[in-house]
């Protein structure tokens, strides 16, 4: 148990020193503020700069609160995920390429602790950044647009966090599997995009998929109720997360730390 804490602390210290704990939350904060604010000012912006003929009486309705929250989640799902993937693509591959893992793994370090402590730290950073960004998004939505029941907001956010966990696990998994950072990033992003797209194009075929989570959290913001087959997709996602962690550990164990001599 002790070793987990030591390894986790190291991850934490490293991420603080290279400012990951600043710029990742910052991205989420910015996204969280921009979405409600632009939604609020959009009608004005369009009126002034939209190039509509003088005197045309157009009404632009304000979006509803749940809509703005859903759009914020959409931003997190694109730019936020991109940032998380780029920040963590080298989490295992980078250490292996530079050889810094050698002197760690010749110590009596458990491979499980090595991988899981990394996962815990990534997940903590991702979820914290999302939480603070979404908190601000909700605040500005409430102030500028309209209130949404707090319990809907919290429930929806918790559900969406599971999708973020899925993404961090995917990065870790590929980072164990492959050497190239770029390859890890490309695969993770590719897979998340494909899952999300497929889930919105053919939701019937992909009821179980993690890609449905975003739309479930949208409907929770709207009505407090998730869509159909909610538990199916949540439990499938959790099973996939656990499976990927286990496979990462097994793969990491079987892979030789040193594969060639220099």
């Amino acid at each position: 148990m002790n070793q987990w804490i030591i390894l986790f602390n190291k991850e934490m210290k490293e991420a603080i020193r290279n400012f990951k704990w600043i710029w990742i939350p910052l991205v989420f904060i910015l996204l969280g503020i921009i979405q409600p604010v632009t939604s609020y000012f959009l009608p004005d912006i369009l009126k002034n700069f939209g190039g509509f003929p003088e005197g045309s009486m157009l009404e632009f309705p304000l979006p509803t609160g749940p809509q703005v929250l859903a759009e914020t989640i959409g931003q997190f799902g694109q730019i936020g995920v991109l940032v998380i993937v780029l920040a963590f693509m080298g989490i295992v591959a980078g250490e292996r390429n530079s050889g810094t893992n050698i002197m760690v793994l010749v110590k009596p370090v458990s491979y499980v602790a090595y991988i899981v402590s990394k996962w815990l730290h990534m997940s903590l950073l991702a979820i914290s950044s999302f939480s603070i960004g979404f908190l601000l998004a909700s605040y500005y939505t409430f102030q500028l647009i309209e209130s949404v029941p707090i319990s809907y907001v919290i429930k929806g956010a918790v559900v969406y966090s599971i999708w973020l966990l899925f993404v961090t696990t995917l990065v870790l998994f590929f980072s164990v599997l492959f050497k190239s950072n770029a390859g890890v990033a490309a695969l993770t992003l590719g897979i998340t995009i494909i899952i999300s797209l497929m889930s919105s194009i053919t939701p019937d075929l992909l009821r179980w998929s993690p890609g449905m989570i975003a739309s479930h959290s949208h409907s929770i913001f709207q009505s407090g109720e998730a869509g159909e087959y909610f538990w199916l997709s949540i439990s499938c996602t959790i099973v996939l997360i656990i499976l990927m962690i286990i496979l990462s550990i097994i793969n990491f164990k079987n892979k030789e730390t040193v594969t060639h001599t220099t």
Binding site: I6, K10, E14, R17, N18, S98, G99, T100, I102, P108
Partner: peptide, 25 residues
């Protein structure tokens, strides 16, 4: 073990690294 080309975490201080190694040990 000391590898031929030891690779450290450059962001740690020498002291931090040895303490870290000791705790892992």
């Amino acid at each position: 073990y000391l590898p031929q080309y030891p690779k450290f975490y450059g962001w740690m201080t020498g002291e931090e690294y040895v303490v870290y190694a000791g705790q892992l040990g």
